Amino acid sequence: MRWCVSVGAVLVAGAIVGGDVAGIAAPTPNSRFADGNRGVQPVNVELVIAVDVSYSMDMDELAIQREGYAHAIVSKDFLQALRAIPGSRVAVTYFEWSMSGDEKIIIPWRVIDGPESADAVAAEIMTAPVRRGSSTSISGAIDFAVQLFEENPYRGLRRVIDISGDGPNNDGAPVTGARDAALEKGIIINGLPIMVKEPSLSTTDIENLDLYYEDCVIGGPGAFVMTIEDREKFQEAIRTKLVREVAGLAPESGIVPAAEKEPRVPCLIGEKKSQERGRR
């Protein structure tokens, strides 16, 4: 079931990673910590940032998107959220995706625990060459992100996929199957639908991408969508989103929790539009 956790519960959970806090005993390690693997490093959050570079994203959008994540990671708000929990550490990896099988890791797993490590990660993001892909496979991106969790050396109280995109799934497997498989593993998926351009008949873009993300893409405890409709607010939205993911804050007004009803937009709409284009 998808639901919203309380701020207090998440902050307490994050604070007790290393031991007793304010008289509260640390919980018995769960199976992810007690798996017997030597060298496993505990963190508060394992965060996968999955960034759309499909052809529908223009070069300006790609640049703004990348700058947005780099600036967010070094922002005062992000670092304050990190410091709010003593000993807080976030493991993060950043990859770009387009069609199924076209996923490229830009930042391998890194730990951010303060300004210096945040600066290093942001610098890596900004120095990587900008690239573009072709189709849009959100399902492929989710599957790739899940595999990154399985292979990384960190273990966190929460595992979060932060996925951005400007169109529906139109390549690879249906998105709902990938989403549901991730949710079964306890992974949270948050969405950043980019709606700064009017949908065109020559593309597979849709008008209600925000509703599509809410009903077909995101899920897990406290899952939410933040919609970007103005290029000028790109960086602000990304910063707010990362802060909430690190702090585990519950959604507020303007941040939409995952829907628990029938999809308002067909989850196969991208595939349908792609087929219609092929018949023209």
Rank of each mutant, 00 (worst) to 15 (best):
F224S: 03
D77H: 08
R110G: 11
P27D: 04
W3T: 11
A9V: 09
W97P: 05
T204I: 14
M126R: 15
M57K: 02
D180H: 09
E236N: 03
A26M: 10
E207R: 15
A34D: 10
P257H: 11
V130K: 11
E262V: 13
E124Q: 13
C267Y: 03
E260R: 00
I142S: 00
G186A: 08
N170K: 09
A118M: 12
P168E: 05
Q235S: 14
F149M: 07
V246H: 07
I163A: 01
L157Y: 12
M1Q: 09
D58A: 01
A122P: 05
I85N: 10
V265N: 05
E245L: 00
D113I: 08
G248A: 08
L249H: 05
G270S: 05
E260M: 06
I188C: 06
P199R: 08
V5P: 00
P168L: 04
M226R: 15
A9S: 13
R89T: 09
I228G: 02
L242Y: 06
E262Q: 13
E61M: 09
P199M: 07
K185Y: 01
E276P: 00
K104R: 11
R231W: 04
W3Q: 08
E151D: 13
G36W: 01
T93I: 00
S202G: 08
P27E: 03
V74F: 02
L62D: 03
K104V: 06
M195T: 14
Y94G: 03
R158H: 09
A181Y: 02
D210L: 06
T204V: 15
D52W: 00
G177W: 12
I238S: 03
V17L: 15
S253I: 11
I238D: 00
Q235K: 12
G191D: 04
R89F: 01
E198W: 04
R89Q: 13
Y69Q: 01
L211C: 03
I188F: 02
V92Q: 02
N37K: 15
V45G: 06
A178K: 00
Y94T: 01
S139I: 07
A259K: 10
I49P: 02
E116Q: 13
P251A: 06
R155M: 12
R179L: 07
L79A: 02
R244N: 07
I106Q: 09
E252R: 14
A178L: 07
I64N: 12
V130N: 11
I142V: 15
A223C: 07
P199D: 07
P153A: 12
N190L: 07
P221T: 13
I255G: 03
A34N: 12
